[in-house]
């Protein structure tokens, strides 16, 4: 008869382990996310000028659907300019001009007659610094939908947007309080809820965590990860660890040029270009 060793797992230990053993194991650990076949935004040889200065130079880039695409690069590399071009926010800079093409779902958004206001309903934006309106939490979220003639139930829309922005539980009992009473991280999630309330297709985020503390940053990063199931997200960030944590694709820009774009996993383990390598390892400049 086989003697049972004393250190063999007890029934209780086995019971504790059993659920873990039943958990599925990924077939190919570390495999990059399957590329989305659908391209939502595409730039072709896109150059953006401020006067005679080329802030973005002949960038050709595809933004896949339902993925987080991060754009990284040193200050002044043109990443925010490129992001703002995606919903024509650069139109508000009088000296800016655009060459090349920028397509949103196949439609050239810089063609004559294209309506940028309609575009901004489909492509929302969240800025570096939280910028709530000087109104109640409720009105901040409801406002965009209300002025655009939303016909549904506004209260439901506000609740849904706040839930998607992971803010509902924290504000549901004080919806009429001023948005300014919220913390910085809560204000930023409110701005995301405000953008989501318009039920956009794409969310552009311009350094959305740079004014936030690490806990608030972690909340936003978790949120970005959840949002990609419903939206396409383009994220500009100075924080390379953030790009590595939350994005599926990463584009590296330098002095207005797109140097390299690839799966985030590849960019941060074996980048193909020496300038990318030097930048991500902090040896730049």
């Amino acid at each position: 008869m086989v003697k049972v060793a004393e250190d063999q797992p007890t029934e209780a230990a086995e019971a504790a382990w059993a659920p873990m053993l039943r958990m599925p194991i990924p077939r190919v650990p570390g495999k990059p996310p399957t590329p989305s076949s659908e391209c939502v935004i595409r730039t072709e040889q896109l150059s953006i000028y401020y006067g005679s200065f080329a802030a973005v130079r002949e960038v050709t880039l595809e933004i896949p659907s339902h993925r987080v695409t991060a754009i990284i690069g040193p200050s002044g590399c043109g990443k925010s300019t490129l992001l703002r071009a995606m919903n024509r926010m650069n139109d508000f800079v009088p000296s800016s001009t655009v060459k090349g093409k920028l397509f949103y779902r196949g439609d050239d958004i810089y063609r004559p007659g294209f309506d940028p206001v309609e575009l901004r309903l489909r492509i929302g934006m969240v800025f570096q610094k939280p910028n709530p309106f000087p109104k109640s939490i409720y009105k901040n979220v409801a406002w965009g939908a209300a002025i655009n003639g939303y016909q549904g139930n506004l209260e439901e829309l506000v609740e849904r947007a706040l839930q998607q922005a992971a803010l509902w539980e924290e504000v549901k009992d004080k919806l009429q309080d001023s948005a300014y009473a919220l913390s910085g991280g809560q204000q930023q999630r409110l701005c995301i809820a405000r953008a989501i309330a318009l039920q956009p297709d794409v969310l552009l985020m311009d350094e959305p965590c740079s004014a936030l503390d690490p806990i608030a940053t972690a909340h936003i990063e978790d949120l970005i990860d959840k949002l990609k199931s419903q939206y396409t997200v383009v994220l500009v960030t100075h924080n390379m660890q953030q790009a590595a944590r939350v994005s599926d694709r990463t584009a590296f820009m330098y002095i207005g040029e797109l140097i390299e774009v690839n799966d985030t996993n590849v960019i941060f383990t074996k980048p193909g270009n020496k300038r990318t390598q030097d930048y991500i390892t902090g040896r730049f400049g």
């Binding site: 390379m240 590595a244 941060f268 383990t269 990318t276 390598q277 991500i280 390892t281």
Partner: peptide, 9 residues
């Protein structure tokens, strides 16, 4: 330091 790229390798 959370290294990446060649430093991580």
């Amino acid at each position: 330091y959370q290294p990446v790229g060649s430093d991580l390798r």
